[in-house]
Simulated scan of single mutants.
Amino acid sequence: MRLDKFICHHTGISRADAKRVLKQEMVTVDEAVIKDPGFKVTDDMDVELEGRPLGAVKPRYFMLNKVANTLCSTIDEEYPSVLSYMDLPNTKGLHIAGRLDVDTTGLVLITDDGQWSHQITSPKKACMKRYRAWLAEPLVADAEKQFAEGVQLHNELELTKPAILERISDTEVLLSISEGKYHQVKRMFAAMDNKVMQLHREQIGEIALDPDLEEGEWRELTDAEINSVWQK
């Protein structure tokens, strides 16, 4: 694979930007600075952008059922990284496509394909995510209407985009949103004087959490799941 294409594939940046970072000597292959966009990258080469490792030539795609008190980060901090549950020989270049709060459980998508994850995380793509939430107080009667019209979050100028709220019971709901604001689900219910006691993500786009995966377990995505992201 051409080096400029490889960079685009793993970062989501444009071909023009890839050539720019190459020209600025920001890319190394096996610790040597390479400026040639047409340089051929093979499976056994280590490619880094500003010292950050990029992934393998063949992109990888996984789903993981996140455990509570784990971080959607590639490094261990106060809590362990979700990647610590993956017994892979090489996790270099992997990143999380759509992070979850430390106490939130459920579906996490992990890849080294920057363009693919961009389809999920970019606000312009409006990728739907479905969450199951358990609440401290009974849901107000017109909650479905309020969520469909948009909710005014604290310290936000605009309403949230329309969301789909399904009432399982007065304290258990399914919520589908197309945004990814900071702590958005928790803040939406807080705006209604309620509190999320437990939060679990069940679906991203057309990719649903595999019911056979126990907490902390993972598997590779199927071709159909991978391709569904491009077909939105």
Rank of each mutant, 00 (worst) to 15 (best):
N227Q: 07
K195C: 02
L22Q: 09
G55M: 14
I177A: 06
T28W: 13
D30Q: 05
A68H: 01
K232M: 03
A190T: 06
L139W: 08
Q119N: 09
P59T: 12
F6V: 01
Q24Y: 09
C8W: 15
S117H: 04
D113K: 13
L165E: 04
T42D: 12
Y131G: 01
A141E: 15
R20Q: 05
C8M: 15
E179G: 04
H95K: 09
N65K: 14
I13A: 08
K23V: 09
Y85V: 08
K19H: 04
R219V: 01
L64P: 11
F189Q: 03
F189W: 11
D212P: 02
D76T: 15
R167E: 07
Q152P: 05
V140N: 07
P211V: 00
L199W: 11
E206K: 11
H10F: 06
E220G: 08
I168S: 00
G12D: 06
S84K: 15
L221A: 04
G180P: 04
H200I: 00
M63A: 14
K232Y: 10
D44S: 11
V140E: 06
R187S: 09
M188C: 03
S122C: 06
R132G: 01
P37T: 10
L64R: 05
L107F: 07
S117F: 00
S228C: 02
Q115D: 14
K58Y: 14
N227D: 13
Q146P: 03
I164V: 11
C127E: 03
F189P: 05
R60N: 02
T11S: 01
A224W: 01
R201A: 00
A143R: 00
R167W: 09
C8E: 15
D17P: 05
K129N: 03
R187H: 08
L83Q: 11
E144Y: 01
D210P: 06
D142P: 07
Q24V: 07
